[in-house]
Design a protein around this nucleic acid. Sequence first.
RNA 1: GGCCCGUUCGUCUAACGGUUAGGACGCCGGCCUCUCACGCCGGUAAUACGAGUUCGAAUCUCGUACGGGUCACCA
Length: 473
Amino acid sequence: MASPPVVRFAPSPTGYLHIGGARTALYNWLYARGRGGRFVLRIEDSDQERSTPESEVAIFEGLRWLGLDWDEGPDVGGPHGPYRQSERLERYRQAADRLIAERKAYRCSCTAEDLARMRSASPDPRAFRYPGVCRDRAVPADVRHVVRFVMPATGTTGWDDLVKGRIEVANETLQDEVILRPNGLPLYNFGAVVDDVDMEIDHVIRGDDHVVNTPRQIQMFRALGRPEPRFAHLPMILGEDKKKLSKRTGTVSVLQYRDDGYLPHALVNFLARIGWSHGDQEIFTLGELVAKFDFDAVSASGGVWNAKKLDWLSSHWIRQTPVPGLADLVLPFLGSLGVADCPRERLEAAVALQRERAKTLKELASGIAFYFQRPLVLEAKAAEKTLDADALARVEALAQSLELVAPFDPGPIEAAVAEFLRSRGLELKAVAQAARVALTGRTQSPGLYDVMSVLGRDGTLARLRGARTAPRG
RNA sequence: GGCCCGUUCGUCUAACGGUUAGGACGCCGGCCUCUCACGCCGGUAAUACGAGUUCGAAUCUCGUACGGGUCACCA
């Protein structure tokens, strides 16, 4: 019905990209991409104390890893720049001057001490609101001052939230906020509004914690003579303890999930589904998310982070990833396990087998490392349990009967093993686990014939025969 | 404490006044089977509480309880 939306993600660069921010960014991105809109990235670094360039880079990196690209932003530019608040000071000054000229804002020379005094003298210090003592004082521009916004004292301010429905707030609960510091840096509410105006943002999609800021910002939009955007306030993501998500309750850094071996799309799928739904569907491709995402199905209540479900999604998407690409992705994780030399063909064969068995790339790597490790170190407990003298003898005899198998593929191998068992009157169970431990060093692995095939004849025979003397640890 | 928001299985959620309250993750059992995983089958488990409106309420209204957000010259 309307023209394509213009949305923004506006993090403050005071740390890494965390889970909550990532979901906010994702919902903005999905909304824009699903409707041919624009996604703007703006850096809100108006707090000089806390903002760092490193954080900005980390946020870019997190967004890029998730695949959330932006149409305008500090690094790519755009027609509404600059996109860093610290570079937009002139704009805030101009806007504030205009408001002052129109008597919609004023200079205030009250000091922090003045404020503290007034607060403690008020009947209920916790409910203290700045009483506007400088409103009519005509504080000269050359005395140290902040700029305060003239907030209406009566009436109500309300909006139809895309997620929460109608919200109304009595204006008497608002106060004359500081919008500009003495050093010219804007405060959050003002900077965001001026930027949203300049950048033509028409949908503000952000966390629940901003609901209280919305009426103030609406008043500022109106004072600047601009229509306010639509607002969508996303519920919080809670930790498994149902408290606000924090480091204490689990991993909150997006890049940490990358380093832990999660596929970015698994995280995207999970993030999309925490707080939004589409009937009974759990698995979504990116294209489906873009096509189906809308606010009518965004939940109004907070959602608890469910690491197990992320794992399930992650294992699903690992199984869906084509083997060659997956092999590329697993390489760095193999490297950090000390595996450097893995022939491409065997690597891909190993990945194809292990893909069904891994929740993360990290698990995938540790699941296939045994193919490439030399010497293979047998898990002590596994070896002790399955490789007694009889078993060792059987495993060595098995090696003997595999010597002439050709080609060394699962089918022929299985036939040779069957023949071996028949000639000795054994059941597969009698040798399988011992062979498995000899070949892989552990008690769990893909099917034996598949493992042997990947290992190749030489590798297979060497491991079966070397089990007796293989290092254990 | 003021203001604002929220409340369906343990968790994510479906249901948009009429369903035996559905699905998914997890968990438990079974099948498959050389182990593990995958897959398949089955099971466990929820409308916070109380009034009201209605022929009929998880759905609408009010209250209570509980939870959360926020009260900065942070964002």
